[in-house]
Amino acid sequence: MEQLFSQIFVGLSIGSILLLVALGLTFTFGQMGVINMAHGEFIMAGAYTTYVVQQALGDGATSTAFLLSLPAALVVAGLLGLALEALLIRRLYGRPLDTLLVTWGVALILQQLARDLFGAQNVEVKSPGWLNGGTEVLGVGVAYNRIFIMVLALAATAGAWFVVSRMKQGRRMRAVMQNRQLAAASGIGTAAVDRRTFFLGSGLAGVAGVAITQLGSVGPTLGQNYIVDAFLVVVAGGLGKLRGAVIAALVLGLCNSLIEYWTEASLAKVIVFVLIVAFLQLRPQGIVAQETRGLA
């Protein structure tokens, strides 16, 4: 029983990581329809931002540096996204295949850039003291860094939800995504909205990168580990739907951890993939369907 609780916690934890890495994609891919293969590299940029901030502030300020990295990574990854949108993607709207190839190329360039700047070796990001170790809840060992990631995922999702549904900017965003021509005709500067949406989506990837430094290695190919999962969450959740992404991430996380517990890691991955394919056969629009009157 304890083991089951323990696995459920692991599942929720995996789910929150999935949610965090996929959150940005619900904007760029889900809402704007841009297949951004460089999304993983924005995560990587966020992770390296943490490293740079830590190096800059020195060993004594690990904790401050880590917290400071969150907004810093949002800005760094967001600016990278902005540059990508302005220089390339803007010219390729409505051409998904070209976008896919171009952003894949950008992903490779960013990886190589990281390799040239920081070396092919992984770099070490130190954990602040309060993220080390863990505690027991109902006999289940929970690591502090996992709790932190859950809280961060929650906060990021809440923030994203607030922007989308409560702010003027968010309303414009949704208007443009649902019917671009009509939005433009109503006086919304669609190009500016696109830029802001892309900044937000990319910036969220950077925030995910900060969290990921606490889990694994920080290296140039870090983003590759998460890109497929991020797309899976968005597709399974239903394009552009925050609620769908939350449900999909948690279900996928729980499936992963429980199936892995009863079988093994490699097999669990296969089973989860099969389940997703089967699910999308039955419900191609994902868990939560986009309701739109747009023609596109």
């Binding site: 696995q7 692991v10 934890s13 995996i14 990581i17 996992r146 889990l215 694994g216 290695s217 590759q224 580990n225 992963n256 951890s257 892995e260 517990y261 093994e264 890691a265 490699s266 991955k269």
Partner: peptide
């Protein structure tokens, strides 16, 4: 066994 490159080891 974990897939090569895997970073999720909690289970």
């Amino acid at each position: 066994y974990a897939p090569l490159g895997s970073t999720e080891f909690s289970t």
